Simulated scan of single mutants.
Amino acid sequence: MAVQGIIRVAINGYGVIGKRVADAVAVQKDMALAGVADIATDWRPRAALHKGYSLYGATSEHAASMRAAGLDVSGTLDDLLEAADIVVDCTPKHLASKNIEIYRRLGIKYIVHGGETHESTGHSFVAEANYASAVGRDGTRVVSCNTTSIIRTLSALKRHGLLDRARGTLLRRATDPWESHQGGIMNTLVPEPEIPSHQGPDAQSVDPDLDVVTMAVKVPETLAHLHYWSVQLTREASKDEVLDAFRTSSRIALIRISDGLSAINSVKELMADLGRPHDSLYEVALWEDMLKVQGNELFYAYMVDNQAIVVPETIDAIRALTGAEPDAETSIRDTNDSLGIGSLGL
């Protein structure tokens, strides 16, 4: 761990996830943002400089082109890594797994995200499920947004001895809002070609004992994902008992249609009204008044903000890998407090 108990964090890739992780690191009492590395010369790195973040080019060539574009560049990725204790790789899918070779060669701890395979690190992370197994490791993979939501919800049921098996249908947003003008889908639905879709097996990389099958379809919207779940319980249970199980996760927010939160756009608007950075919904937003229990069968739906849900997990993974905080509950509480998680006021 770093001198004086402060973890120096490097961010490689200042995109959708990278900028959100950088902002989250900046408000942690036990962390300092060493800087962010990227290749872009447009408005995105300029926003980083506006926030006072040190900017680095991914290579010397990229640093030169960034300087030519008028950006104040502090050096290259290698320079940034020398000034850090851990790097969070937020580069595009499949690039991070190649960067792992660099991190291992330099002996720096590293975090990648769900676009990479479990095999790239040998460990997949969700704080409430397997924090302890990440403590002191060289690297881990914070699983995807959808997989994070699956582990949070099913683990809550499992801790209460209620989970037998789970089957989920995922309505996946087509693209990120900021680039929806460049692509996505319109006037159609695109099913994933295989059942199970990849999220179920991915959840089993965190908890191999889960009996879970997922199906997914891409839909023409950009706000968030929507999940529908049918769960076989181990026994008959009441709705209140199931809700109490979900309440044990600080990162599941129970919302109600009766409060006007009847669609994903209204939930996002609530995040804006609460002043969340980037309108971020860090929690799984689960509709409690829609939830239905029939004997030993459970049915529910929830919303996943794919740009935000992995941010608190990444902060916890930083503490776990560096050994700065060996206790999961303490790290989760500190992260939650710093990001306002659990304060929807509903």
Rank of each mutant, 00 (worst) to 15 (best):
L281R: 04
M303T: 05
P277R: 03
E194I: 13
G183C: 10
L154I: 08
D259V: 11
A324I: 06
R44S: 15
E288V: 13
P220R: 10
Q199Y: 13
I309Y: 03
A22Y: 09
V25S: 01
I86Q: 05
Y14Q: 09
S74R: 13
L226Y: 11
S65W: 11
T59H: 08
I108E: 12
L81F: 01
P312F: 03
D209P: 05
E325D: 12
S180C: 14
I341S: 12
S205Q: 04
E116V: 07
H94Y: 10
N296W: 04
G183A: 00
S230Y: 02
L321K: 03
S205K: 06
T153N: 10
D209V: 09
V217L: 15
V112A: 12
L254C: 05
V126D: 05
T314W: 04
D316G: 13
D240W: 09
S266E: 14
G115I: 12
G52F: 04
G5I: 02
S280N: 13
L281S: 12
D89H: 12
G340M: 00
H94P: 08
A272F: 06
P92Y: 03
V143G: 02
L226P: 02
S120L: 01
V217I: 02
L243P: 04
M66F: 11
I100P: 12
D42N: 10
L170S: 00
D38N: 07
N265L: 08
V190C: 03
N130P: 02
L210N: 08
D176P: 07
L286W: 00
D305H: 04
I315V: 11
P220Q: 03
T153S: 10
L189S: 10
L281E: 08
L223D: 07
Y103T: 06
L226Q: 14
V284Y: 01
